[in-house]
């Protein structure tokens, strides 16, 4: 390689690599660099996506021979496995989780976007939960919300309120699961809003206040529109993650009471790894994938339309 490079080294860089032997060696090296991640991506992402569609057309428990059943799983999971219910439960979780989490994150960002002493420390503290092992933190929340020994009901008891049995009450179980998630990711999402806020030139606010715009109108006309990319990112990633919620629901309630918190991912887990019905679980995975895809596309279209509308 060095010889080839030196002999033609005075020309353009492109031509210095043009000898066929050196070219071939460069390509070989490139593929050698790429090989591990390519194997990983193909083996653990591309093939599984194809495989899950194939498996969704079968009935199989991993032991007896695989049986083709066409699309019947897609009907059966709604009829016999309450998959429709678990999709609704998941949607309920997303609706509880995303708006509150986004508003809290935005509120934290607006509140902490200054140079006052202590703000930097609080920004850091708010991000700390992002690293918390969800399973371990869920155990802590189980204790906090324990009906008799939990601190929440003890505090409520001091002011004369008999708190509910949070996690075994169908009305409060899902809000607690959502709360666990909001607590963990509010500070994380705050960072995207902070980055967005810093990108807004202060001169825009100065010009606006010279024009007599009040704080509220500045927020609506400058801050919110310019935070739109951050907002889109927070919403899209939050929604994708929320549709797949598992750890917190598994530890906090394990789907209960009844199946009030049996989110889609928990239903897939039970179907595949407790019932060993691979075909049905695969069909559920495919449907959940489609739901996530559609919701993500809808968010992008909505944001794009809004953006063009505002700019006209």
């Amino acid at each position: 390689m060095s010889v080839a490079a030196v002999t033609t080294g005075l020309g353009k860089p492109k031509s210095s690599e043009a000898t066929p032997a050196a070219d071939r060696r460069r390509i070989r090296t490139a593929f050698a660099f790429l090989a591990p991640s390519l194997v990983g991506v193909v083996l653990f992402l591309v093939i599984p996506v194809i495989l899950v569609i194939i498996l969704s057309l079968t009935q199989w428990n991993l032991l007896t021979p695989l049986k083709w059943v066409g699309f019947s799983n897609y009907a059966n999971i709604f009829k016999y496995d309450a998959f429709g219910h678990s999709l609704l439960v998941t949607a309920y979780y997303v609706v509880l989780n995303i708006p509150i989490q986004t508003v809290v994150a935005l509120g934290l960002a607006l509140l902490l976007n200054n140079k006052l002493r202590g703000s930097a420390f609080v920004r850091i503290v708010a991000v700390l939960p992002f690293l918390a092992t969800p399973v371990a933190m869920s155990v802590v929340w189980t204790w906090f919300f324990d009906p008799t020994n939990g601190i929440v009901n003890q505090l409520l008891g001091h002011i004369g309120i008999a708190g509910p049995a949070w996690l075994s009450d169908a009305a409060t179980a899902m809000p607690i699961v959502a709360f666990a998630n909001i607590w963990q990711y509010a500070g994380y999402n705050m960072l995207f809003f902070l980055a967005g806020l810093q990108a807004i030139p202060p001169s825009m606010y100065e010009a606006a206040s010279l024009d007599g715009a009040g704080k509220l109108s500045q927020f609506r006309r400058i801050t919110l529109p310019l935070l739109r990319p951050a907002l889109l990112f927070v919403l899209v990633t939050g929604v994708i993650g929320s549709f797949q919620v598992f750890d917190t629901a598994f530890v906090l309630t394990n789907g209960g009471p009844g199946n009030a918190t049996t989110v889609a991912n928990l239903n897939i887990y039970n179907t595949a790894f407790q019932g060993f019905r691979i075909g049905e679980a695969s069909a559920m995975s495919v449907i959940l994938f489609l739901v996530i895809l559609v919701v993500t596309v809808l968010q992008f279209t909505y944001f794009n339309r809004r953006t063009t509308y505002e700019m006209v």
Partner: peptide, 20 residues
């Protein structure tokens, strides 16, 4: 192709990966 796989949610690959 890498970019496309970036969009694949974890839950989708769970069952087929287990089978593999």
């Amino acid at each position: 192709m890498y970019l496309a796989t970036l969009m694949v949610p974890n839950v989708v690959t769970l069952v087929p990966l287990y089978v593999m």
